[in-house]
Amino acid sequence: MSATRMMILGLVKWMQPVHGYDVRRELLSWGADRWANVQPGSIYHALRKLTEEGLLRAVSTEQVGARPARTTYEVTPKGEDEFEGLLRAQWWQVQERPDPFTAAFSFLPALPRDEAAAALRNRANLLRAGIESMRASLESDWIRTSKPVHVGWMFELWSARAEAEMAWCERVADRIDSGVSYLPAGPARGEGWPGWSDGEPGRTADAK
Score class of each variant (00 low, 15 high):
residue 60 S to H: 00
residue 152 G to M: 07
residue 90 Q to W: 12
residue 203 R to A: 08
residue 66 A to W: 10
residue 166 M to Q: 12
residue 206 D to C: 05
residue 37 N to I: 06
residue 115 E to H: 11
residue 62 E to S: 15
residue 101 F to I: 14
residue 148 P to W: 00
residue 112 P to W: 06
residue 85 G to E: 12
residue 124 A to N: 09
residue 36 A to C: 13
residue 59 V to H: 01
residue 118 A to I: 01
residue 66 A to Y: 06
residue 1 M to T: 07
residue 117 A to E: 10
residue 106 S to K: 08
residue 17 P to M: 04
residue 157 L to G: 05
residue 108 L to N: 09
residue 152 G to Y: 04
residue 34 R to E: 12
residue 132 E to S: 15
residue 202 G to R: 11
residue 148 P to Y: 00
residue 14 W to P: 00
residue 11 L to S: 15
residue 94 V to Q: 12
residue 107 F to P: 00
residue 96 E to H: 05
residue 153 W to P: 00
residue 105 F to A: 14
residue 127 L to R: 15
residue 170 E to A: 08
residue 160 A to Q: 11
residue 38 V to E: 02
residue 171 R to F: 05
residue 11 L to P: 02
residue 202 G to K: 10
residue 26 E to S: 14
residue 45 H to C: 04
residue 45 H to N: 10
residue 49 K to W: 04
residue 53 E to G: 00
residue 97 R to T: 09
residue 46 A to Q: 10
residue 45 H to I: 12
residue 151 V to R: 01
residue 198 D to F: 04
residue 150 H to S: 07
residue 41 G to K: 13
residue 78 K to S: 11
residue 167 A to C: 01
residue 47 L to F: 09
residue 139 E to K: 15
residue 194 P to D: 10
residue 29 S to G: 06
residue 146 S to D: 02
residue 172 V to K: 11
residue 122 N to I: 02
residue 145 T to C: 02
residue 123 R to W: 14
residue 200 E to P: 00
residue 22 D to C: 03
residue 103 A to T: 12
residue 125 N to A: 15
residue 153 W to H: 13
residue 82 E to V: 05
residue 157 L to W: 06
residue 106 S to G: 04
residue 18 V to C: 10
residue 32 A to S: 15
residue 206 D to F: 05
residue 198 D to E: 12
residue 196 W to N: 00
residue 113 R to H: 03
residue 191 E to D: 06
residue 131 I to G: 02
residue 124 A to R: 10
residue 159 S to D: 08
residue 90 Q to C: 11
residue 23 V to C: 15
residue 15 M to D: 11
residue 29 S to E: 13
residue 113 R to C: 09
residue 103 A to E: 12
residue 144 R to C: 00
